[in-house]
Structure formats: C-alpha cells, structure tokens
C-alpha cells in the first residue's frame, strides 16, 4: 500500500510517501491511523488528534469509517486551506 502525506502531516512524519505492508487486522481508515501512530514519534505527533486528519483513497475523500479495501494509494493530510 502506498501512503502519501501532505503539509504538516508530511513534516511531522518526516517524509512525503512510503510503501507500507498493512497487517490483516487493519481494515478501516481509523485502524490505519491507529496502526501508523505506533510507528514512531513523528507519526504519533502527526496523528495525535486523528479527528483533524483528512484521508483520501485513490484521490477520493473518505471518512474514518471507510474500509480500505483494494485502494492503492492512501493520502493523509490536514484540513485543506486552498482558494
């Protein structure tokens, strides 16, 4: 699974993308955030308040209850500030 990070999520985690093998028990976005939080200090800092993390699977916004399914690219980022 390819993970990509943006803005302060990217800065706190320390890189912009990575390939991660997800354990079988990680089936939803919420479980993914919990799994990542345990990967190190940067992750813990970035994902400390999961309610502030927005997620897209294959370029589509999803909520935290979404099942990851066969998604190929999951993006984690803060609330958007374009426009």
């Amino acid at each position: 699974m390819k993970l990509v990070y943006f803005a302060w999520v990217r800065e706190r985690i320390g890189h912009s993308d990575e390939e991660v093998d997800l354990p079988a028990e990680v089936t939803t976005v919420r479980e993914l955030l919990g799994f990542l939080r345990a990967r190190g200090d940067g992750y813990a800092q970035a994902l400390q308040y999961p309610e502030h993390i927005r997620v897209a699977i294959d370029h589509e916004h999803v909520d935290h209850d979404q099942r990851i399914g066969t998604g190929r690219e999951i993006a984690l980022f803060p609330p958007m500030t374009g426009g």
Binding site: F6, W8, M80, T81, G83
Partner: peptide
Amino acid sequence: LKSRAPFWKKEHRVDGRVGDWVSAKDSDD
C-alpha cells in the same frame, strides 16, 4: 473548493521566518 480541494498554504514571513501552516477556518466549512 476551499474545503475540498487538496491545497495547503504555508506562510513565509517578511522577517525571514518560515511561519505556520494556515489553519482551516470553521467559517469556511
């Protein structure tokens, strides 16, 4: 566009400091 298009703004200050990421506003939501 402001609440759904994936863009993020970071401030660069006149004093040379790289400032903060702009926070999303509740008023925009």
